[in-house]
Write a protein that binds this DNA or RNA. Structure first.
Length: 862
RNA sequence: GCCGGUGUGGCGGAAUGGCAGACGCGACCGACUCAAACUCGGUUGCCCGCAAGGGCGUGUGGGUUCGACUCCCACCACCGGCACCA
């Protein structure tokens, strides 16, 4: 087929993986046996999906690992009698194609589709059992036309909107980044430091789904890796507390702040606004000229800081006093208002009430600027015992005396002196009617009080931000709206979709801060669909995570030009039963796909709310302990890895290397060991001398037991993704067959044939070419990949005798062969009589015997 | 700082509370060979012992149990997520 599939035959063994691969790949290509069944197929269904690849350069060993697992799962369910959908596609929009195009002066299309062609060949060479009739590429207009449909669906429901706000900006890629694409203050893509920039951009309102995205994670418990669930919970970051309204002197509207500790409201001593918020600008505008200048200076210096500088811990607190005052709604106290960058414009309401005694950040600021600290929670007070009920003192001590008693110790931990805020549990003090209450009760009480006064209410806040989807780049889905001369934004009518990208030739794709599409004059010029007046297109393109947020639906009808996906088919196939890919997508992609699924559900397009029933995350493939990367020069390419050992050996070696979720070091992976095993398995099939019509039951019982034990155990092991154990067990079976042929019942024994056939069937999960070859050698027609699972004979799973262990004082002193159905008394008698037991006891008396037939007898002598 | 995970031979790793180290890699010994490769057979946790056998052993220290890699507590080391998120 090609040079890259050349596999060196293990010399002398006669096993020639290269010839076998060529032969079976040709037959698969010709007969397409892994196409998913249609409506007439009555088998139950399983949708098995690997996260689709991004076509940057060649595939590497991370892909080899991921798609080996995908194929194991897909092949397994076919053997189990399911109609399996296992499609493949390409996430083919995005920056690397554009950057490669800039470097080479080529069209991103050419680079992208050339890489895809290479990927397809690699997957064919790998023997992956895809339904090749359902290929999709997100950069095809036939695909992104439905991205545009999705955008308009969201726009119609107010879930897509434009806003002017500080965004993450990568100065290197010259484009904005979603919050999720900023890692440690750096661009996820290129590693350049990210800065904040104020821009008008398109957003998807994922925050409207924050509660459901968080709460529905409970349904996934046990089906998704707990690590991913935890990461998503962290990312959404729900905080519960209260919104509190503050009057501002000389300011018409009240300003709301969010706090998780409304119980400490009496301890607020100042008020802080984010310097880059609109509120800060408004307040500064109403301040004396000198304050305005200081504020402007401060704002400029904040703007110059990179995200890395801003996020560094132990950074001294900075800020400016705005000479304005907020009024504490609970006690009327005047709180000086400061602008400080430790308060973030885009979290909560961009303003906080500062309670330095009970918040470390507020305390650090108060100490830096010499602001008062007022303790309102006595963290030395006992809060043990029953949870105190509001308004009572549960240990019966009069409150005043209790407080007086503790004053001495409280003085020792005065935050103003120690610099350590009192954030723990305690009893309220200096807080009027809240005094004596526990933190929890005080929170409940103050929310009641604020609600009664109309100055506050219970509230939640999230770390999650809305999803910024505009990108100032060429190689993405054009945003299907028109900007009219009078400033309206009109969606491109459905019958004018797809709005396709213009030809890249003649366009300057180099990053310059604005979208290259803006310079495509002809393309930009359009008319207002409503009035016919001249208008402009939107020059930005969509984040490629939009493309991947729903592609699992498009696989149901990738070639249908009339709709994004058929609802009835979605009901039959979705949600995806097994979704397999790297943990690097634990937040971004999976969160976005979950969000879009819920949005589509709300719109009535689908009838499920979670896209992926089971998630399997494989670990990374390392080399010499380091992450593989092109820049480090330690990248093992997928295609070249198959050259010597052959595809089957690579797949088997990966499956055997260790647990799916653990990292694999490629230097620990033995493809030659795997190849030796495959050659052994193949030779065993060659050695079988009986005909297919032999009666298995007449065969060697010991070998049959091994075979049927394996048939019984493998399904559970595969469902627990213990693929390495399945390979090990299969090796044991091959070893047992070898032994039976060479030194036991011989090659004509029916059990040898039976075991060889089972080996071929199970080996299909890992080494499909070799398995097909074995199946043919054993006298059957193709394809072993479609053979129904042989069920285990239960009578062969029950052993007649068993080894029982005899422990004396916790140490194993003897093992005795006993009937499997032995009774306790009989077993104990046998154990007591055993000469090794007698010798070990050396006359000591047995004081206690625990007997667990048929496995264990445990004697104690003291 | 908050949340979580992991720790088993020279290496990758097995093990519903019941013989720790399955299976493999590597290493060593042997058969085949003029020789090697391939293949096949054997040995391989550490220590003492010619052997029979014995002692020790799953990061450390405690605990529960007839019995703990497995359950509980504390600690150590490494890894991951979040982090000026009010």
């Amino acid at each position: 087929m090609s040079q890259t599939t050349t596999a060196a035959p293990a010399e002398g063994s006669g096993y020639d993986p290269y010839a076998i691969q060529q032969k079976w790949q040709a037959r698969w290509a010709e007969e397409d046996p892994f196409r998913a069944g249609g409506d007439d197929d009555t088998r139950p269904r399983k949708y098995v999906l690997g996260m689709f690849p991004y076509p940057s350069g060649d595939l590497h060993m991370g892909h080899a690992e991921s798609y080996a697992y995908v194929d194991i799962v897909a092949r397994f369910w076919r053997h189990r009698g399911y109609n399996v959908l296992n499609p493949i596609g390409w996430d083919s929009f995005g920056l690397p194609a554009e950057n490669a195009a800039i470097q080479r002066g080529a069209d991103p299309r050419e680079w992208t589709y050339a890489n895809i062609a290479q990927h397809k060949k690699s997957f064919r060479d790998y023997g992956s059992s895809y339904d090749w009739s359902r290929i999709l590429h997100t950069s095809d207009p036939e695909y992104y036309r439905w991205n545009q449909w999705l955008f308009q669906q969201l726009l119609e429901r107010g879930l897509a909107y434009r806003k002017d706000s500080p965004v993450n900006w990568c100065p290197n890629d010259q484009t904005v980044l979603a919050n999720e694409q900023v890692v440690d203050g750096r661009c996820e893509r290129c590693g350049h430091e990210v800065v904040k920039k104020k821009l008008t951009q398109w957003y998807f309102k994922i925050t409207e789904y924050a509660d459901r995205l968080l709460d529905d994670l409970n349904q996934l418990e046990g089906f998704w890796p707990s690590k991913v669930i935890r990461m998503q919970r962290n990312w959404i970051g729900r905080s519960v507390g209260a919104d509190i309204d503050f009057e501002i002197e000389g300011h018409p509207e009240t300003v709301t702040v969010f706090s998780t500790r409304p119980d400490t409201l009496h301890g607020a001593t100042f008020f802080v606004v984010a310097p880059d918020s609109d509120l800060a600008a408004e307040l500064a505008a109403g301040a004396p000229a000198e304050v305005r200048l200081r504020f402007q200076d401060y704002l400029d210096s904040v703007g110059r800081e990179s995200e890395i500088e801003r996020q560094s811990t132990d950074r001294p607190k900075t800020g400016v006093f705005l000479e304005r005052y907020a009024i504490n709604p609970i006690n009327g106290e005047r709180l000086p208002i400061w602008a400080a960058d430790y308060v973030l414009a885009d979290y909560g309401h961009g303003a906080v009430m500062a309670v330095p005694a009970h918040d470390q950040r507020d305390l650090d600021f108060a100490r830096a600027f010499d602001l008062p600290v007022k303790v309102v929670v006595d963290t030395t007070a006992p809060i043990t015992g029953a949870i105190p009920v509001i308004g009572t003192d549960d240990d019966g001590v009069p409150l005043e005396s209790a407080v007086a008693e503790l004053e001495a110790s409280l003085a020792d931990i005065d935050p103003a002196k120690t610099g350590v805020a009192l954030t723990g549990e305690g009893r309220l003090i200096n807080s009027g009617s809240l005094d004596g209450l526990s933190k929890r009760n005080a929170i409940a009480r103050i929310i009641e009080q604020l609600e009664a006064a109309g100055t506050g209410r219970a509230a939640k806040s999230y770390r999650l931000r809305d999803w910024l989807i505009s990108r100032q780049r060429f190689w993405g889905t054009p945003i299907p709206v028109v900007h009219t001369a009078d400033g309206r934004i009109v969606p491109v009518p459905d019958d004018q979709l797809p709005l396709t990208l213009p030809d890249a030739h003649g366009l300057d794709l180099a990053p310059k801060g604005t979208s290259p599409l803006g310079a495509a004059t002809e393309w930009m010029q359009t008319t207002d669909p409503e009035t016919g007046e001249p208008a402009l297109r939107d020059p930005d393109t969509m984040d490629t995570f939009v493309d991947s947020s729903w592609y699992f639906l498009r696989f149901l009808s990738p070639n249908d030009p009339t709709r994004p996906f058929p609802k009835d088919e979605a009901a039959r196939w979705e949600p995806v039963d097994y979704y397999i890919g790297g943990v690097e997508h634990a937040i971004l992609h999976l969160l976005y796909a979950r969000f879009i699924t819920k949005a589509l559900y709300d719109m009535g397009h689908i009838d499920f709310t979670e896209p992926f029933s089971n998630l399997i995350n494989q670990g990374m493939v390392l080399l010499g302990g380091a992450k593989m990367s092109k820049s480090k020069g330690n990248l093992v390419e997928f295609a070249s890895s198959m050259v010597d050992p052959g595809a089957d050996a690579v797949r088997t070696a990966i499956a055997f290397a260790g647990p799916v979720e653990d990292d694999i070091d490629w230097s620990d992976v033995s493809t030659t060991g795997a190849q030796k095993f495959l050659a052994r398995a193949w030779r065993v099939a060659k050695d079988v001398t009986s005909d297919p019509d032999v009666v298995w039951a007449d065969g060697d019982q010991a070998l049959r037991r091994v075979t049927h034990r394996l048939l019984a155990d493998v399904p559970g092991l595969v469902e627990q993704t213990k693929f390495n154990v399945v390979v090990a067990r299969l090796m044991e079976l091959v070893n047992a067959i070898r032994k039976t042929i060479d030194t036991g019942a011989g090659p004509a024994d029916p059990a040898v044939r039976e075991a060889a056939e089972v080996t071929a069937m199970i080996l299909d999960l890992f080494a499909p070419h070799t398995a097909e070859e074995m199946w043919q050698i054993l006298g059957y027609d193709a394809f072993v990949g479609l053979v129904p699972w042989r069920s285990a004979d239960p009578t062969l799973l029950v052993e007649e005798t068993q080894k029982a262990v005899v422990q004396i004082d916790g140490k194993v002193r003897a093992t005795i062969e006993v009937p499997a159905r032995i009774g306790a008394e009989e077993l104990e008698a046998l154990a007591r009589a055993d000469e090794r037991v007698v010798r070990s006891l050396a006359g000591r008396e047995i004081t206690r015997a625990v007997v667990r037939p048929p496995k264990v007898v445990s004697f104690s002598t003291h």
